[in-house]
Design a binder for these strands. Sequence first.
DNA 1: TCGAATTTGTGCGTATGTATC
DNA 2: GGATACATACGCACAAATTCG
Lengths: 251, 251
Amino acid sequence: MREQPPYRRFAEVLRSRIENEEWKPGERLPSRAQLAEEGGVTTDIVRRAQEWLITQGVLTGRVGSGTYVAEQRERVRVVHSPEREQAGQAPFYVDMAALGRRGTSESRTDGMVPATPDIAARLGIAEGDYCVRTSYEYLADGKPVQLLTSWEPYSITAGSLVILPETGPLAGAGVVRRMAEIGITVAEVEERPDAGHADADEAHLLGIQKGALVTRIRRTYFSDDGRAVETADIVVPSALCEIIYRFPVTR
Amino acid sequence: MREQPPYRRFAEVLRSRIENEEWKPGERLPSRAQLAEEGGVTTDIVRRAQEWLITQGVLTGRVGSGTYVAEQRERVRVVHSPEREQAGQAPFYVDMAALGRRGTSESRTDGMVPATPDIAARLGIAEGDYCVRTSYEYLADGKPVQLLTSWEPYSITAGSLVILPETGPLAGAGVVRRMAEIGITVAEVEERPDAGHADADEAHLLGIQKGALVTRIRRTYFSDDGRAVETADIVVPSALCEIIYRFPVTR
DNA sequence: TCGAATTTGTGCGTATGTATC
DNA sequence: GGATACATACGCACAAATTCG
């Protein structure tokens, strides 16, 4: 085993000082100049050590302010299972109720937008066909933990009371319940998770570091006649949410 | 919108030259010195541009050899659904059969190992209790696409013929089938996907870039009496595999 | 209210390491 | 074994954001 470079050695020094609670979660570390001085290294070594610990989730940096010990918020467990989908409310609220947390959301319907090639393929409609797009920010105990953007084909809900997902008596009821209202039975759900990094906007909305690991889920609901009735992009930050799929092994 | 830095501008130059098929997938680019010369930039700008395109999946670097246009292999679709689990073979082979590809695997049983705290918690056994650990490398048409390490409590399979997963007549049969052989009914599966990066070993085994995005799945099978009978760590590289969860919305 | 000082973040060039041919 | 090519580490300069007087 070869020797560790200076910045990694200094990172371990910082890590052990944090583990000894010299600085507690949420507290600010001394400036790079001070740490470099007392550690007998250059400020650049300190910077790289902090960079490394930031990617490890030990520290967080705030430009112009300082470097802080990361507060490890408990990860919210969201369980994706057949049972969760059948409740008369959006899946996220089912999860929060199960955890004894207060689940809320802020939504903004962007109105009708033409389908991009990707969205058209996922919904099985023609490119340019209109969809109702809605953006959500899901909060657990008031803190954001997930982002979601959904698209519904205009042709399905046109003229009905549920055309706008988050207005009227069925706000927050979830796709399954809302579609049932207009005579459509949602029978199946498909989720395609993929690893990715948070962009600047997502990081800002979620209160996490830019570039932090996220799971992006492309979810599509299908009716009993096989038509796609809704598709959504879900951003699940690894630091805040734990995703669990649970289903039976049929026999 | 502010101006792009030089390395990003040069990255776009390279990207457009690749899109114009000046260099085709799998081909080697000129050396950094040559690209820098003809582009009127420093070799460092070329290096950063290539680094950026590597993270974007456009290029791959091979130390000592050169920088190559990435060959975008078709992503293998692995569908995690209740139905897939009931077949009498390992889930991966079911996927490959559905895709018309040749699914194979290489495995190595490490024998009995004491359970780490994490594994013990997942299997509901005491820390230090013995498990049979087995490592797999799954191949599609001979190329590696997934890594898997499984742990089974020794207490469950002790004395039976299925104690070693990949020997005997039930090699490759999958956990559900093997447990059935010793009178245990596997009733439920739980999967916890999380975003991550490939370490050097994983990258080497999978033939991908170190640090490439992967989804790590912690999978556990439960018997009908609620006991955990197997748990596994699965590494799914984003560039090679597309994960799909599909299940009914029960009613 | 505003501006200067402080602190973190980004970009770049050089030197060195390491794998390949 | 030498030459070549990419990868890593480091130091410096400057930009961006915040803080505080």
